Computed example of a mutant assay.
Amino acid sequence: MKKIITLVVFAFLIVNCTNEPLSTDIQTEAKQSNSSTSATAKGTYSECDPISINIMAGQFTNAGKILVENDATNLYVTYSALTNWYFSELHLFVGPYANVPIKNGNPIPGQFPYNKSFNPLIQSYTFTIPLSSIILDDNRCLFIAAHSSMKNIVNGNVVRTETGWAGDIKFPGKNWATYFKYCLRNCETPPPVTNCDTAYMFGNNTFIGLEISEKWGWATYYDNVADGTYNYNLYAGAGQNNINNGYLAGTVTIVIQGSSVKVTINATHPGTVFTETHVYLSDDRPATAAPGLYGNQHTLNNSTTDSYDLTYSGDGSFWIIIHAAVCTTD
């Protein structure tokens, strides 16, 4: 009888070691979170609809949203996880980019001024930050770096543990951390919803085909190109390099004259503006898809046009990538 009991217990332990088990506290919190609202409702803290930015877990999985709004006194930043995703830690920076704790181009979340740890885990949390404590630029704008430690819980087991970041602007370091820009609003009536996306000029090579990234995006190679004017489309949100998954955000005009290359980027989609642009131009094949490493960058304040005057060897053959961070108000 003792041998039978020992074998049963041993088998139970083997079965239950295939996934990381939840603690009793986390199970309790998971039940509580599922019975409550996990997203900030429209105008929870102000007359403005929240700005919504996706939280990407492990770079490629949409695991939640960052919702941002303000009133006359405070900035409100809400972390909201999707079903089966939970937060164990949050780290938040708001203010000028120059003040972000950074080492070798990578942000240091542990040194962000606003942070929170959770045990039990949670699915939603709001930081309330007095505007008087935030350094704003002349346009009453700031940058937000929102980091999170997340767990994917299915049937009571932790099946994934990931780092989460929100935003379309990549930090210049080697990791994939991102951030975004927010400008204070004064709303008497709720404005339309604003969505921010990554946009690329359509080209004759994909990042995947060039084996420089698993994400979507295009590069264009010119071979013995003649002097002249060339026009291209700029697509936003075109996942899997399928333009039907996104929308036409604008156009790109490239004027080639000898070794001079002038690039003009225009937003043509109604309500679309640029917050940042990047251009890669080189005789050499691109080795990275990270926009922050392209070598040419402009930070913009919701502009509808931008331009670059660049040069290359002038032999008629070169590579070019055009990237833009776009926000569209529908």
Rank of each mutant, 00 (worst) to 15 (best):
N204P: 09
C141L: 03
D306T: 11
K181Q: 15
N104A: 04
S317K: 06
N157F: 13
N195P: 02
P107Q: 03
T198C: 09
Y97V: 12
S46W: 02
I243S: 11
V252H: 14
P191M: 06
H147A: 05
V225D: 02
K174R: 10
M56F: 12
S259P: 11
P130R: 00
D25T: 07
A177Y: 14
P130N: 03
P109T: 01
L293A: 12
P101S: 00
Y221N: 14
P172T: 03
L22C: 12
F143P: 06
G105A: 00
D49L: 15
S313P: 04
E162I: 05
T328H: 13
D71T: 09
W218E: 05
L67N: 14
Q59V: 14
A30G: 10
A226K: 09
D25F: 13
P286W: 00
N70L: 05
G228Q: 07
M56H: 11
I256S: 05
G314R: 03
L131H: 03
K65I: 09
K42S: 15
G271P: 08
E69F: 01
I212P: 07
L131T: 05
V263D: 05
L210C: 03
T18G: 09
A145W: 10
L184Y: 09
Y294C: 04
W319D: 07
T37W: 05
F118W: 08
L90M: 09
N245Y: 03
T299L: 14
I265Q: 13
S133M: 01
V159Y: 11
K174C: 05
N302F: 10
T305D: 11
R285P: 00
I135G: 09
L310M: 07
T78W: 01
L7Y: 02
L90K: 10
F274G: 06
H91W: 13
N296H: 14
T126D: 02
Y114F: 09
T251Q: 15
K174Y: 07
S80W: 01
D309Y: 11
E188C: 05
Y45V: 06
V193S: 15
F12D: 01
F171K: 04
G164I: 04
N242H: 02
D49C: 11
A41T: 14
N84A: 06
C17V: 05
V193C: 04
S33T: 08
T305C: 07
V15L: 13
N231F: 06
G314Q: 03
R185C: 04
G295H: 07
Y294F: 15
S88M: 07
E29N: 14
T251C: 06
A145C: 04
T178P: 07
A72G: 08
V255L: 10
G95R: 08
A219L: 04
D315F: 03
N157S: 11
I265K: 08
E211S: 15
G164V: 04
N34T: 05
T229G: 05
C141F: 01
T6E: 09
A63P: 07
N99T: 05
